[in-house]
Design a protein around this nucleic acid. Sequence first.
DNA 1: CGTCTGCTTGAGTAATGTCAAATCTAGTGG
DNA 2: CCACTAGATTTGACATTACTCAAGCAGACG
Lengths: 232, 232
Amino acid sequence: MHPHDPEVTAAITALDLFAGLPASALDEVTARARVRTLGRGARMFDQGEPVERAHVLLSGAIRIAQAGSDGGQVVLRFIGPGEIFGSVAIFTDHLYPADGIAMVGSTEASWARADWLDLIERYPRIALNLITIVGRRLAELQDRVREMATQRAERRIANTLLRLARQAGRATGAGTEIGFPLRRKDIADISGTTLFTVSRTLNDWRRQGLIADDRRALTLVSMAGIGRIALG
Amino acid sequence: MHPHDPEVTAAITALDLFAGLPASALDEVTARARVRTLGRGARMFDQGEPVERAHVLLSGAIRIAQAGSDGGQVVLRFIGPGEIFGSVAIFTDHLYPADGIAMVGSTEASWARADWLDLIERYPRIALNLITIVGRRLAELQDRVREMATQRAERRIANTLLRLARQAGRATGAGTEIGFPLRRKDIADISGTTLFTVSRTLNDWRRQGLIADDRRALTLVSMAGIGRIALG
DNA sequence: CGTCTGCTTGAGTAATGTCAAATCTAGTGG
DNA sequence: CCACTAGATTTGACATTACTCAAGCAGACG
């Protein structure tokens, strides 16, 4: 896909990141974007690599996973369409803090570091939008830290599912379907538990009719029920 | 203290947040600041309250603590002199995400929301500085989430102490002294464990000569030793 | 049909949380 | 100066969550 593809242009101009920009600025933003499509399992970038570009996801899903010097791994976030990713380190230590891996075939737009800084300088509104986005992620991480410190695995899993539903939920006949192709391990790595505990917990919930799980997508049948578990 | 107090002026103009601003801008920033001193235990703001001001700590120490709807509590961060706090929510949901409590007598500067937004609009460099600061805190929280998910209590405590030493450490004859008046409960609430586990762990380390703890301040006698524990 | 990846289930165990009680320290006021 | 108090810390005993490891199963895909 080319940056000037009308579909791509529409997607870029609709991003929260560029809200409030005049049409002329959006043209410029679009013109400088590089658009790239990767297959399932491909790496958008690797942890520790220098950050040369700012990224936005146009379609698909990305897993942002951080590995420790020991084996331990966590998922910091799943990225859905319209979300920015792997871009904040341009302002800090210039190294990607995590791997970015396509969970399904995905298309991203990205801007070279120099273009990005230039655009922000000329359109400071982008900086404000970025502060808002990063501020929201900060608040979400703060919630996760509190949950991991004070809640047991089952509640954390419930809170995780509710967050994912908020982020990428689609209402369907059966309930709210989460728009990421999640394996047990993914849910474990973002909830701070093991895939075994996730498996047991989700099976309990399925038996109780709280969720449905057709191995294609996870659906929260009873948000209220999951919500009750999340509250303790 | 008055904003025009020369000591206060110097402290404000030295802040990372205002790095790169021309002198005229710094004058304006200083002129609009409100300076306030609070005693030990006083609340700078309460969780859930609307954010009307942006804050910077000039001296002292603040505990930023978030409580869940259940009793659970975590410390999100300790704030030392020169650090911004309780200011990001101006751009998001306009509510303080946590309590801000003076751990010792503390002096802060703050700006009314409208002044703050006006200053940022006229000096976009402030926005860039803010992105850098928030980006670093985001990275730190990501590290903490990974630690809580993958490391056991002892290692998390070691990592916590190393982080605090980096943030507020002073080299002394005996080692690196942490510049916050920390109780066991504080260390527990930021490490994601209990004050009992912290007590046992710190006593072990003291017996091994890794730390000293004269109930006035905590000193890391052997950063290398603590570092080895942090690595596993 | 075989292989690979992911999921489920069971059994055993260790880390650490919970609770109770004793001890210590700093500060207060007689 | 000393007794008293409140808050913080230490230590012990115990309970339990959820991690670890092993084994078998299911579905997808070539």
